[in-house]
Design a protein around this nucleic acid. Structure first.
Lengths: 242, 242
DNA sequence: CGGCTACTTGAGTATTCTCAAATTGTGTGG
DNA sequence: CCACACAATTTGAGAATACTCAAGTAGCCG
């Protein structure tokens, strides 16, 4: 009944490998030949690491989906991103003794652990690796800045539309359908990421559905009119029917 | 009349140099010995670079204050940060052909231009430089994430209070007074950075002043009660007088 | 002294949040 | 397999917050 590719992602392996290696001399996936990499599996809800734990490694997501949550001393909490296959997790803790955020699996997931100290020295031996790591960090900064722009300039509806298009795009890059996928995160996580409340997210999704832009039922999402969603992000009024 | 250290920052040079070099084997300031560095001066309002210009170099701020602005294709604009002495500017464009944002001097400023290609190869020769660069990028990510947390979880008043404390802290690290300084940016820039409107920022500042937490007149800022501001950020109600 | 921009303040509006309730799906134990 | 508890989601109504529009003030520069 459910034709959506599940977490295993076997069919997408080639596409993903291509995108991982397209940029620069070496892909992070090739590190196997230069580093001791261990595989780690996570159940849904399980923490990859918690704030305060010693920082020793980066993680390359192979399968599944994880969220990273920023935490403040006074108990506030904010989802800062969702990580999928090909994403490097843990960069925010580089150079610190301990991790600065929580990372939690939303799905059955699998990551490769890349011990950081060996990785740094490998950068000196392996040509292109250093540039690749630096590029990945810069890319992370660009992603964060891009969301700061969205959160600072868009209202609730446009934020959600933007989020859906981003998800669709990332799914497409991984070789999955951009128009039909399963949301791995609940409404509260989406809301936190978008700096909204879960009720607002729910209402916006209902409204987008009423307009025929999407079809959503719980976690199952269909993008019916990506162009219309893009218009929505750009602030164009939906054409009035008559 | 004005006893605040101005842009020249001569008195703080030693302190700053210390903080620049404290972390890791080499400070970015020592790059002079390994790279062709050229100095560049900027007048207030002048662009260091614009979105779309070819990316060739990073910049180390020596004097003054700059803002970076993220831009979207449809004309939206968001200040993503303010950069002061010791900050590395341009990291968001690493690995791309062109710059992805605008950087504008708010003040008479001076930066050192670090050509990126020579810098990358210097990373292979100069021990510790690579780790230092990576650390700086990670620090940038942490700064962004920290603001994402603030913007996502705090109301207008607490955001502004948080912003003022951050400014005070950065001033202190540079050897300036944490309790008395000049805001280099106008209300609109502060508002954009905090995802608010300038009227809201203005109102909040007035309110904080009424409560005796700050004393503000245009760009001149005095922090009268840093502890009270901290309480404000943490959501504690101000003690009711009777 | 204009003319300008930056800033402040007020009043009414719009959006989002809060609180509450109803619904639905899920997993567990009987 | 069913009953139940529980978590996630949806929806409504009213409240709170921040925004928009507007007016007025104040410093700055030529």
């Amino acid at each position: 009944m459910n034709t959506i590719p599940a977490g295993t992602a076997h069919t997408a392996a080639k596409v993903v490998a291509g995108s991982l290696e397209r940029r620069d001399d070496i892909g992070l996936g090739e590190l196997r030949d230069h580093l001791p990499m261990t595989r780690r599996r996570l159940r849904p809800g399980q923490h990859l690491y918690r704030s305060g734990q010693p920082f020793t490694a980066l993680f390359l997501v192979n399968v599944g989906c994880l969220k990273s949550c920023e935490l403040s001393d006074d108990g506030r909490e904010q989802v800062t991103g969702f990580r999928m296959r090909g994403d490097l997790v843990g960069v925010e803790s580089i150079g610190l003794p301990g991790c600065t955020c929580d990372v939690v699996a939303l799905d059955a997931s699998e990551v490769w652990e890349l011990p950081y100290a060996p990785m740094l020295s490998a950068c000196l031996r392996v040509p292109g690796l250093q540039a690749r790591l630096t590029w990945t960090l810069a890319e992370e900064i660009r992603r964060d800045r891009s969301w700061m722009l969205a959160l600072g300039t868009l209202g609730a509806e446009r934020r959600v539309a933007s989020f859906l298009l981003d998800l669709a795009d990332r799914h497409a890059r991984l070789g999955f359908s951009a128009s039909h996928f399963i949301l791995r995160m609940n409404r509260t996580d989406i809301a936190s990421f978008l700096a909204l409340k879960h009720e607002t997210v729910s209402r916006v999704l209902s409204r987008l559905q009423e307009r025929g832009l999407i079809l959503v039922e719980r976690r199952e999402m269909r993008i019916l009119d990506a162009h219309g969603l893009r218009d929505c992000v750009n602030g164009d009024e939906p054409a009035t029917m008559h």
